[in-house]
Each structure stands twice: as C-alpha cells, then as structure tokens.
Simulated scan of single mutants.
Amino acid sequence: MNTPRTNVRQHILDTAKPIILGKGFSVVGLNEVLAAAAVPKGSFYHYFKSKELFGEALLESYFADYLEYLDQLLGKREGSGAERLMSYWRGWLESQASEDMQGKCLAVKLGGEVSDLSEAMRLALHQGTDQIITRLADCISAGLADGSLSGEMDARHTAETLYEMWLGATLLTKMRRNRSAMEGAMIATLKMLNLKS
C-alpha cells in the first residue's frame, strides 16, 4: 500500500526523470526538480539525504519499472521466444530513435556521466543492467527450448553481447542524430540469432 510518504517520494522521482533524461544528472539542480515537483527543499532532504542518494533512488525506480515492462514483454506466454525477443529490439529501436524523452534509456543517459562520480549510482546501473541481461538470457533460452532460435549459442553470453551492442548503438544514435547505428544493430542481432529479417 502506498503511503503519502512513498507517494511524495515517488512523485519527486517521476518528475525528475524526464528532466534528467533531457539534461543529465550533473547539470540539473535540485531547485529545478523541486520547482517542477512543487515540493519544498526541506521535504526533499526528508526523503533523500543527498543528491547522490537521490540519483541512486532514481536509477532504482527506473530499473524497477523497466524490469516490470520486460517481465511482461519477454515473460509472456504468447509468441515464441524469438518473437518476444525481436519485439523488444524493435521497441528499443523505435523508442531510442524518437524525440520523445519519456521512452529514453536512463542507463544510456547516465552511464558515462555518473559511473566515475558516484559509486552508489554506478552500482545501481550495474545491478539494473545485469538484471536486464538476465531477462534477455532467459528469453533466449526460451527461444532455444521452443525451437524458434537455433544454433550453438550460450544464452547469457549472447544476451550480454546484444545488450552491449544496443547500448553502444544508442550512444552513436545520440551522437549522429540518426538511427543508422541502431539499424546496423538490428541487422547484426538477426544474424547473431540466426533469424531472417
């Protein structure tokens, strides 16, 4: 059950996410987040003892929501393992190539920025991305079991390689301001999974 305390805390996190996705963590001041959330500064420090702990909580909240989405998408019973997996990559391409900040990946946005600045935030990023890879590996294993994926592939290694490739392609997409890197990642993904386009 959500209490008023968790509601206000979550409201601050939900309000901050699109702002930080747009500008980055270091650039955004607490006053900007608090003004947007209509929360006084004293209340912020009631929920978060520092900006670093706020950043850690922001990442944990982001990954909790994202993992719930993955559980619904990759763990559902309809469709083969390969179909569910390719639905994920197609969704990634569309969301990360769009101009809408709401669907952007916070791990991509903050990974390079905060990993050297905050050990707590680095660990939150590491743990969150590791859980994503685990779910991808489970879906690959399901595809191998149901016959929709074939070949000699290690599910965990394949999931790690694909996720790393897509993270890199997303960074290149931000730099180039076009989707060519992610389109290349899609071609490489199909080849790695022995699937036709």
Rank of each mutant, 00 (worst) to 15 (best):
K49N: 11
S50T: 14
L53H: 09
E56S: 09
A57W: 09
L58T: 01
L58Q: 02
L59G: 06
L59Y: 07
L59F: 11
L59T: 05
Y62A: 08
Y62N: 00
Y62R: 07
Y62I: 04
F63H: 07
F63T: 00
F63K: 03
F63Q: 01
A64W: 06
A64E: 15
D65G: 11
Y66P: 01
L67T: 06
L67E: 14
E68H: 08
E68C: 09
Y69Q: 14
Y69R: 15
Y69H: 13
L73D: 04
G75H: 05
K76E: 07
A82W: 02
E83R: 12
E83D: 14
R84M: 02
R84W: 04
R84D: 01
Y88C: 03
W89D: 00
W89M: 10
G91R: 10
G91V: 12
L93Q: 13
S95Y: 05
A97L: 13
S98N: 01
Q102N: 14
Q102W: 10
G103R: 08
C105I: 08
V108P: 09
V108R: 12
K109F: 02
K109A: 14
L110H: 07
L110D: 07
G111C: 05
G112V: 00
V114Q: 13
V114H: 05
S115I: 04
L117M: 08
S118F: 07
A120C: 09
L125K: 09
H126F: 12
Q127H: 14
Q127K: 14
G128Y: 03
G128C: 04
T129K: 09
T129S: 12
I133Q: 14
T134C: 02
L136V: 10
A137Q: 05
D138F: 04
C139W: 01
I140C: 00
I140P: 01
G143K: 05
L144D: 02
L144G: 05
L144C: 04
L144H: 07
D146S: 13
D146G: 09
D146I: 11
G147L: 11
L149W: 09
S150L: 06
S150D: 04
S150E: 12
G151C: 02
E152D: 15
M153K: 12
M153R: 13
M153D: 04
A155R: 08
A155Y: 06
R156G: 00
R156D: 11
H157C: 02
H157S: 14
T158F: 06
T158W: 02
A159D: 03
T161E: 05
L162Q: 03
L162I: 03
E164I: 08
M165K: 07
M165A: 14
M165R: 12
